[in-house]
């Protein structure tokens, strides 16, 4: 889709993640939840790709697949020249130095029995990056980088506020100097004023360390703020991918249009034409035939229920999977 030039850090090709569902009887054919069903994108060095979609669209599964926290059923994930899905367990463990993740929930992503210092030192100890005095120096440096103080070192997670916990999670992710970080709803659980602090921190770190982010979120405003490009997911597929500006100003896919219009207005007197979608997300075990969105699409045509649209380039940096574009 995007040109595969050398500046690309990560390239994902036709990624699939089908979870088996326990079937009703021992003899029945197992069903699969098609959480991710053929997703391709690429992320350049220092770039942030936003991945947006509603709960159950498979965006988190994409993030976890890239780090092999879950094993995708098919596809390729190339970090520079290496397809990380081909690596052995041990080789993959080494690769974790380069790929990290920041989780959504700062309450359950930190071990309640460890101190802040122990939490941040874990990756450093795992890879024997530093020990003794060198280790403490590195931890203090990391604390400083994410805006935590020395006096926080010995505290337990429950003694921190939500924002501070998220800073701890970020320090842990940054400890090994990764090149690529998945932010899985990293600011969604935070209050607005704290959310702004964390977004700023993530953007500062990106600038200082030249990181690439996959920024997964359901919040269009946040994604727009931090991302260079945005991919919109619906029921396991990317329906539209473009630079930030085009997605917002010129959304092509009816689903993206609905998403953009559903964002609450900034001012009560602002007139906003809302596209209110009917119904709910269909089940990913048995997705609709044809275009997966046709059951809720206000512009569905006959063809949409039979032929699945392929993602096509709409303009220079803008691709859409919709029959309306032909």
């Amino acid at each position: 889709m995007m040109d595969g030039s050398d500046s690309m850090l990560l390239e994902v090709n036709d990624l699939q993640m089908h979870y088996p569902v326990r079937s009703r009887s021992w003899f029945a054919k197992p069903d699969y939840v098609r959480a991710v069903d053929g997703v391709s994108f690429s992320i350049a060095k220092g770039e942030t790709l936003g991945l947006i979609g509603e709960s159950g669209c498979g965006k988190s599964s994409v993030g976890r697949s890239l780090l092999r926290l879950i094993t995708p059923t098919a596809g390729k994930v190339r970090l520079e020249d290496v397809n990380i899905l081909d690596l052995s367990k041990r080789e993959m463990r080494d690769r974790r130095r380069e790929m990290q993740i920041i989780f959504q929930d700062p309450f359950s992503s930190l071990d309640p029995r460890l101190t802040a210092e122990q939490i941040v030192s874990e990756p450093l100890v795992n890879f024997k990056v530093a020990k003794g005095r060198e280790l403490s120096r590195r931890i203090e440096e990391l604390f400083d980088q994410v805006g935590l103080q020395k006096q926080h070192l010995k505290r337990f997670p429950h003694e921190f506020s939500g924002g501070q916990r998220q800073r701890l999670g970020i320090a842990r992710a940054m400890a090994l100097n990764p090149r690529f970080v998945v932010c899985d709803e990293a600011v969604s659980a935070l209050d607005v004023s704290v959310q702004a602090q964390i977004i700023n921190l993530l953007m500062d770190l990106q600038e200082q360390l030249g990181l690439s982010y996959l920024f997964i979120s359901h919040d269009l405003a946040v994604v727009e703020h931090i991302s260079d490009r945005v991919a919109v997911m619906y029921l396991g597929k990317i329906v539209e991918i473009a630079d930030c500006h085009s997605i917002l100003q010129n959304p092509q896919h009816p689903y993206t249009q609905a998403l953009v219009s559903a964002v609450p207005r900034r001012h009560p007197s602002q007139k906003k034409e809302k596209i209110i979608l009917k119904g709910d997300l269909p089940s990913a075990t048995n997705p609709p035939k044809g275009c997966r969105f046709h059951t809720r699409c206000p512009m569905a045509m006959e063809r949409c229920s039979t032929v699945e649209p392929i993602i096509k380039r709409f303009s220079d940096d803008h691709a859409v999977a919709c029959h309306l574009i032909d």
């Binding site: 976890r64 780090l67 926290l69 463990r93 080494d94 974790r96 130095r97 990290q100 993740i101 989780f103 929930d105 359950s108 992503s109 930190l110 071990d111 309640p112 874990e122 990756p123 795992n126 890879f127 999670g169 842990r172 400890a175 090994l176």
Partner: peptide, 17 residues
């Protein structure tokens, strides 16, 4: 399936550890 266990794997922690 707790998030902090997943976080430990993501930090390269071995299963034993």
């Amino acid at each position: 399936d707790a998030l902090f266990i997943e976080a430990a794997y993501a930090s390269g922690t071995s299963t034993w550890r």
